[in-house]
């Protein structure tokens, strides 16, 4: 792909995105409008994350891409290959070896270091969108710090279901000011939003970039009598035995038999390499899954 510039985007586009990223970092949780470009993959398939990654990658980076926590899901493979081709960066599946990680729907189990950057793909960046479809109105609400609608919604959940009925894309308040959509990560991941690494969020179709600098206060919305609870399936991973990781549920036979395994494939593999074996797992061997 020698016809294309380093990391695909032209320099003027990168500068525009870079300026938006800086303002995003200066105003944590605020959605900065940016003139998203058509990328060579469809809107809704990570074009926001891809544009942010293209704007921040250097040739020295080691890049990791996960989708649902896994490195080998097809869209993760597709995005990883795109940057291998257009930026010539090294790629890895190991969380600890990556300098930039692009993700869809998960935060890696392994805590990120301060020299790592996490780039989120975001479908609908506006946390108030499903309560108020109009952008004109939601922008006004953010400007006035008028988040009553969100609290009403969460409270109605409690009165109807006895619980807050939001399991992913659970809204947070950043540094006491902006209510933010953390992208559709499970609420299990919300506590990890306060981390040492830089977090950047890109929504291509909706033309928004936002950011959380390291060590920024990120609070999941809740009520005193209904405190926020990060939850996961009440199981251990059947492959590596981990009890602290977010699990995928698999249907394994015609009778509807279930098993659970880590959604973070690198976390699971690393544990198995270190000798951990779950209830249905086998001792780790190189090249065997």
């Amino acid at each position: 792909m020698s016809d294309y510039n380093f990391a695909y985007l032209d320099e003027q586009t990168k500068r525009m995105i870079r300026r938006a990223i800086l303002k995003g970092l200066a105003i944590p949780g605020y959605q900065v409008p940016f003139a998203s470009r058509e990328m060579p993959m469809p809107y809704g398939w990570g074009t926001g994350g891809v544009q942010v990654s293209a704007a921040i990658l250097t040739p020295d980076d080691t890049f990791k891409v996960i989708d649902q926590g896994a490195d080998d899901t097809t869209n993760a493979v597709s995005i990883r290959r795109f940057f291998q081709k257009t930026a010539g960066v090294a790629v890895t599946e190991a969380t600890t070896e990556a300098s930039v990680i692009q993700t869809r729907h998960r935060i890696p189990e392994q805590d990120l270091r301060d020299d790592q950057i996490l780039v989120y793909q975001v479908p609908i960046p506006e946390p108030l969108r499903f309560l108020e479809p109009s952008e004109v109105e939601t922008r006004k609400m953010h400007s006035l710090e008028e988040y009553g609608l969100m609290h009403v919604k969460l409270y109605e959940d409690i009165s109807q279901h006895g619980d807050i009925a939001t399991a992913y894309a659970y809204p947070v308040k950043v540094e006491g000011r902006y209510v933010m959509d953390p992208s559709p990560i499970p609420k299990f991941d919300n506590p990890k939003l306060e981390m040492a690494g830089i977090q950047l969020f890109g929504a291509g179709r909706e033309q928004r970039i936002y950011a959380i600098p390291p060590y920024t206060q990120v609070v999941s919305l809740d009520f005193d009598d209904y405190p926020f609870q990060p939850t996961k399936a009440d199981h251990a991973c059947d492959l590596c035995g981990a009890e602290d990781s977010y699990l995928d549920e698999l249907i394994v036979d015609d009778a509807g038999g279930r098993m659970f395994m880590c959604s973070d494939t690198d976390y699971c593999t690393s544990r198995r390499k270190n000798g951990h074996v779950g209830a249905q797992g086998v001792p780790f061997k190189e090249d065997a899954a």
Binding site: F6, A7, E11, K14, R15, R18, I21, L22, L25, A26, A55, I56, L57, T58, P59, D60, D114, I198, A211, P213, P214
Partner: peptide, 14 residues
């Protein structure tokens, strides 16, 4: 510019 931006971005984030 990619190296330079990373430095500026890191500075703004930290």
């Amino acid at each position: 510019s990619s190296h330079a931006f990373r430095a500026v971005m890191t500075a703004m984030a930290r």
